[in-house]
């Protein structure tokens, strides 16, 4: 496997994504034959509103898009953060955006402002995520220099603070609203629509452009901050751009799909082991890997207990945590053997 050329690895990933997407589109509580999927989608876009057309055109297709885009976004952000923190344990959760976002959403529900419109909660999630990220960044910056360790520590502290705020709000709310809030903590894709897909398309597109242009700098940064500065990488600007882009992407994603854990952590980690650490390859591989993981996880989330839906965050953690531990053990034993 390791000797495969890069292009064939990418092809394998693309094929896997195609398979996962096929399952996502073909499976569901409604029994729609595969041969009728495309005609149903075409009918939907021609304004026909039969149950099959609506299920394919308004439910399964946007949901597939959102799953893929969230997977791409989380993995890209994970890969970028791991690069600038030079720490494979970094993920979108660590800079406080995810937990900040969920605080924003939960506050909007608890105070009742969420009832003023469907876009209020997402907006709250985005701004609170940005605020949390800003707090983490400020706390991690001393004397104009952003230390990676103080940034990670500030991230842990702010995430814990946000977590307790969410728990506090949950514990004082009536049960009915509590179920609504659980969505923000455990994630879910049932909110998917063409509008949310378009929103995600924009932010994930921006993230892809920004991070792609940083690929070379990410590679240099992995050598160490001093070496990076030595070859002329503007570290402060680099960190700022990465953090802001990450906050924007994750904030919007949290507002649409809730907090989905482990994707941003395990996908880049696994891809680094498979395609190597060069970001020119790692970033697209992570994007594809994230889309595969999220789409696959959503198929399981929707179908395992159909018609009941499992929160997708549960699936990604269930798949992600043991897999991550396995990778860690394998990596560790390789290092031991080499010694």
């Amino acid at each position: 496997m390791h000797r495969l050329p890069t292009w064939s690895k990418m092809l394998i990933l693309a094929l896997l994504l195609l398979v996962a997407a096929g399952f996502e589109l073909a499976l569901g509580p409604m029994n729609i034959p595969v041969s009728r999927l495309v005609p149903a989608a075409v009918l939907y876009f021609h304004g026909v509103r039969t149950p099959d057309a609506v299920v394919v055109g308004a439910i399964r297709l946007p949901r597939l898009l959102v799953a893929m885009l969230v997977g791409v976004g989380l993995s890209l952000v994970g890969a970028a953060l791991q690069a600038i923190f030079r720490n494979p344990m970094a993920d979108p959760g660590i800079i406080g955006v995810s937990s900040g976002g969920s605080v924003g959403a939960v506050v909007s529900i608890a105070t009742g402002v969420a009832s003023h419109g469907l876009w209020v909660s997402p907006l709250f999630a985005f701004f609170a995520g940005m605020l949390a990220m800003f707090a983490v960044y400020r706390l991690g910056t001393v004397g104009g220099k952003t230390s990676i360790y103080s940034l990670l520590l500030a991230g842990v502290a702010i995430s814990a603070l946000c977590g307790s705020v969410v728990t506090f709000l949950l514990s004082i709310e009536p049960t009915q609203t509590m179920q609504g809030m659980l969505f923000w903590i455990m994630g879910g894709l049932d909110n998917s629509s063409w509008v949310t897909s378009a929103m995600l398309c924009v932010v994930v597109g921006v993230a892809t452009l920004v991070f792609s242009s940083c690929a070379k700098a990410f590679d240099i940064m992995s050598l160490g901050e001093e070496q990076a500065e030595g070859v002329g990488v503007n570290l402060q600007q680099m960190k700022r751009v990465t953090l802001f882009t990450s906050a924007l992407t994750v904030g919007v994603m949290v507002s649409i799909s809730g907090v989905i854990s482990f994707v941003g952590l395990i996908v880049p980690h696994f891809m680094r082991m498979w395609v190597g650490p060069a970001h020119r390859v790692l970033l697209p591989a992570s994007a594809l890997g994230g889309a595969i993981l999220m789409t696959g996880a959503d198929v399981v989330a929707r179908m395992a207990l159909s018609p009941t839906e499992i929160n997708i965050g549960v699936i990604t953690s269930l798949l992600g945590a043991p897999f991550f531990l396995y990778l860690l053990r394998r990596q560790y034993s390789t290092i031991v053997r080499r010694r």
Binding site: G28, P29, M30, P51, V54, V55, I59, R60, Q179, G188, D190, R302, L305, S306, P307, T308, E309, I310, N311
Partner: peptide, 17 residues
């Protein structure tokens, strides 16, 4: 078909109609 209080997808609602 669902047992107890459970989250359900939009598609399941369309099917149960």
């Amino acid at each position: 078909a669902v047992n107890g209080w459970q989250p359900e997808t939009a598609e399941a609602v369309v099917k149960q109609n």
